[in-house]
Design a protein around this nucleic acid. Structure first.
Length: 179
DNA sequence: TGAGCGGCTCCTTATATATCAGCTTCGG
DNA sequence: CCGAAGCTGATATATAAGGAGCCGCTCA
């Protein structure tokens, strides 16, 4: 199971002046175009996860590939704002991970038409003319699975890696029954 | 009839996955 | 000059966020 993306969100619990803040940080770390989108995009280094900051003090982190990375980045972000005197203390008790995107490989090609029937037509959507992957929503889980004819699998919508792994384990068990 | 408000959809960002159309570029 | 090859952007999935725009409803 490989984690390819994590989305986390938190709140600084204070209103922010985005115009001033974006100027204080400055490009290229901060990008702010309120006509295009109401948040500041903050990236500490190129090719690293993105933090989106809102007027209300809420923020989103997108792009980390491990739990350690997402929490380290959150800490760095809070310290950064604290050093700039934007916030008083580097604490934020509301932060939580909202979504994990994971990939896996079944190491076998799949007949997606047969799979749609096997997994249950009510839990699956497969319209190859619209999208080449089969969308599977397991009844007993919150996550959503994308299955491809190559055997590659994308699992998204999970609040933990364990949840994603559970979905994959159940998927393999289901496949063993009718493949 | 029109003002106001609530609810809804879309936009944007990250990311894997694959398949199409449409476009540019390159070689013979 | 034309076919092939390569590239780009659309398609779909989840999720947070704020704002714009839209629709329908209620009340004066």
């Amino acid at each position: 199971m490989k984690v390819v993306n994590i989305v986390g969100s938190g709140s600084l619990n204070t209103e922010l002046d985005l115009e001033t803040l974006s100027e204080e940080i400055g490009p290229p770390q901060a990008r702010y175009d309120p006509d295009k989108y109401p948040g500041i995009y903050l990236r500490f280094e190129k090719e690293t996860p993105l933090i989106t900051i809102y007027r209300t003090g809420k923020y989103i982190i997108t792009g980390p590939t491990s739990e350690e990375e997402v929490f380290d980045l959150r800490e760095r972000f809070l310290n950064f704002l604290s050093d700039m005197d934007v916030i008083e203390n580097a604490a934020d008790e509301w932060f939580s991970v909202q979504n994990y995107v994971c990939t896996e490989d079944l190491n076998q090609t799949l007949n997606l038409n047969a799979l749609a029937i096997g997994l249950g037509l009510e839990q699956t959507e497969y319209e190859p003319e619209q999208f080449p992957g089969l969308i599977y929503r397991p009844e007993k889980h919150n996550g959503v699975v994308l299955l491809f004819a190559t055997g590659r699998v994308v699992i998204t919508g999970c609040q933990s890696v364990d949840a994603a792994e559970e979905i994959f384990t159940d998927l393999k068990d289901d496949l063993a029954e009718f493949v």
